[in-house]
Amino acid sequence: MSAEGSRLVRKTSIAAAVVVLSNVAGNASLSRGLRGHGPAPGAGPLAYVAAFLDPWVAAGVCLLILWMLSRMALLSWADLSYVLPVTASGYVLTAIAGHFLLGEHLSATRWAGTVLIVAGVALVGVTDPLTKERKP
């Protein structure tokens, strides 16, 4: 692999890790803050403003802003059809966070699904991040 190719792979790995970790931590934090007392379906804007005052929700929103920005940066050089499955490893970490941090039940079927996702991520991870000509 060329030096430019190695640089792109290394940069993509770091960016994908930031995207995945910020998404998992953000979602877990939001879930922790919203469970049972978040805005109900059809609630007005004030219910959402009130939800933001919860420290778990506020931390979750900050992490999800980091997720959005890092994902936009990743999409500036990597294909969407590459980014989607590679960042899907977040589903596995979300399942683990839901089980161990939030005490949610995970059945054998959900663990099997987790294994399938890992296989899919591994398969896409060996392809080039960018298949089209890069903009100079």
Binding site: S81, A112, G113, A119, G120, L123, V124, V126, T127, K132
Partner: peptide
């Protein structure tokens, strides 16, 4: 990504996306 963004979606990407979709459905 294939039809609108004109990305070259190789068989590995299709297979990977299918595995992820299957795994997500099981979750």
């Amino acid at each position: 990504a294939r039809c609108y963004l004109k990305e070259r979606v190789t068989w590995k990407r299709w297979a990977g996306a299918a595995l992820v979709a299957g795994g997500v459905a099981m979750l």
